[in-house]
């Protein structure tokens, strides 16, 4: 029983990071009806930015802020240069274009920073906390990760429910025409979605870096997990992304604990396939996704 609880505890913080990445995917899906497969590529790139800034300043928080800023810029650039012009051309094209962006970013990162895997030291200890006579599979860094995630989820919730920008973004996502007739500058709202997603993804990247290391490809698997969580959560739902992001983290932690960590991608695949099989309505429910 204690092992079970240990495995669960060990999965919470990785689940939180999956949740953040899933949030980024959902933010963009809601605004533009595009699944941004380049999201982890952007997060990888901004994490390299953070790494560079941290090497220069030695400060974790400044590095995080730099990554967030870079994430915002990158999100805006991808939206304006790639997604906006491509969207009305064809639906397969938007998907393919995001993969093009992913490939480009990974190659560019390899050029700029080399292909070697780099470590990213956590700002606080990543060793298990010693409490009540035993070492728990839970570190102060996990606490930090979970804290940042909770703060971010609260912040996003407030943004969407309490602010005009949030309302404009929601309206633009749900019904662009009514939004325009209400005086909302829809294309600007969509851009906000990409900026926001870029920032959330950047935070996820910096948070995951100490456990996954940093290399042009080391976040690929995170894309699979995050996509799984986002789809199971319904792709439209921020709450769903967070819930199933953490859920995915827990399941993966249990599977890795009881069997082997190399099972994780297969488990994610099975979860995804089961969900798509059992809940086809949840998938077909979005009238926007028709036709391809």
């Amino acid at each position: 029983m204690t092992t079970f609880i240990d495995y669960l505890l060990g999965g919470v913080s990785s689940g939180a990071i999956i949740a953040l990445m899933a949030l980024a995917i959902v933010l963009i899906w809601r605004s533009t009806r595009v699944v941004n497969f380049a999201q982890v590529g952007q997060a990888m790139f901004t994490t390299y930015v953070a790494l560079t800034v941290r090497d220069a300043t030695g400060n974790w928080i400044i590095a995080l802020l730099a990554a967030i800023a870079a994430g915002a810029v990158l999100g805006l650039v991808v939206h304006w240069l790639v997604i906006r012009p491509v969207k009305r051309v064809d639906t397969s094209g938007a998907i393919i274009a995001t993969f093009g962006v992913l490939i480009s970013l990974q190659a560019l990162a390899g050029m700029l920073w080399g292909g070697d895997t780099r470590g990213y030291a956590p700002p606080v200890s990543n060793d298990g906390i010693q409490l009540a006579g035993r070492i728990w599979p839970f570190s102060w860094y996990d606490v930090l990760v979970i804290g940042v995630t909770i703060a971010l989820v609260i912040g996003l919730t407030l943004l969407f429910t309490r602010t005009n920008i949030g309302l404009a973004m929601r309206a633009s996502a749900f019904n662009p025409e009514v939004a325009r007739l209400s005086g909302v500058r829809v294309s600007r709202s969509l851009a906000y979605g990409w900026i926001l997603a870029g920032m959330v993804g950047a935070i996820a990247g910096v948070l995951v870096a100490p456990t996954s290391q940093v290399s042009p490809n080391s976040f690929d698997i995170l894309l699979v997990f995050a996509f799984t969580a986002a789809v199971i959560g319904g792709l439209d739902s921020l709450v769903g992304a967070v819930t199933f992001g953490i859920g995915t983290g827990l399941v993966i932690s249990l599977v890795s604990g009881y069997s082997d960590s190399s099972n994780a991608p297969v488990v994610a695949l099975v979860l995804l396939a089961l969900n798509l099989l059992l809940k086809p309505d949840g998938v077909f429910g979005h009238h926007h996704s028709r036709a391809v």
Binding site: V224, P265, L269, V283, S289
Partner: peptide, 17 residues
């Protein structure tokens, strides 16, 4: 049974899994 991004995501899972 899947459209566009769902299909791409599932097959991405296949490619990794």
């Amino acid at each position: 049974r899947l459209k566009g991004p769902y299909l791409a995501g599932l097959t991405l899972g296949v490619a990794v899994g």
